[in-house]
Amino acid sequence: MVDRRRIQGPEVSVAPIIIKSADKRTCLKDEHSRRRDGRNLEDICPIFLKTGLISQANGSAFIEIRRTKIACGVYGPRQTKIPSFSGKGNLNVEIKFAPFSCQKRRQPYRDAQEKDLSQLVIEALVPSIRLDLLPKSTIDIYITVLENDGTASCLAAAITCASVAVADAGIEMLDLVPASSASYIGGEIYMDSDLAEEQHETGYLILSYMPSLKEVTHILQSGDVDLALTTQAFEQCTDACSKIYSVMINSLLLPIRDTQ
């Protein structure tokens, strides 16, 4: 007995054809070595960088690279609360991932990874800031990651953004610190990789570099890599940093041009 109230399907059925490539890795780039968003392997993404978005902060900046969105506020220099003997100023960095910023919800309290990333940002920025001119003072940098599109490129963006915010606060620096990242996927270097590419990576390199002084302020590499490939990635990241540097300078000049 057939139930007439139901929608009648065809009498014969055919199994659906599932189109799925055997190796997803090949999908990361096409035959012309263009990546999913049309970039070449060595290209970085366009950057949106703007200063002075947070009214209460002494200096602030906002950066957007693909879906990565990071806001940064700089407060200080102010007097160190618990004074201990030190001829140099203190730099305090707090990175916070918004609970909705990653694929998995992050706990609102500060976790071990955030503490570690904060430490890395401190190490990347300290060489560029004239802390010797600010004894007994503290500079606070608060970084909020609103959206994370790849942890390595996110950290690089956070360093870039924080450096611009410090400059925006009028704190004396030796140079701006642009940072860039690269992923090692199948023996090739993918500059500025996104979240999907990052899941296939066998390693990464994050480099922050002061272009005017030609000094590396921070380097972090993970993965099983040949010396030759590391050297190549190192050169590519240095070039990328120089490109990001011009974006940073423009973002600082723009508000001044506007007032004129």
Partner: peptide, 8 residues
């Protein structure tokens, strides 16, 4: 002799 990590 492969590099497994670099950190400053």
């Amino acid at each position: 002799g492969k590099i497994c990590g670099i950190q400053k």
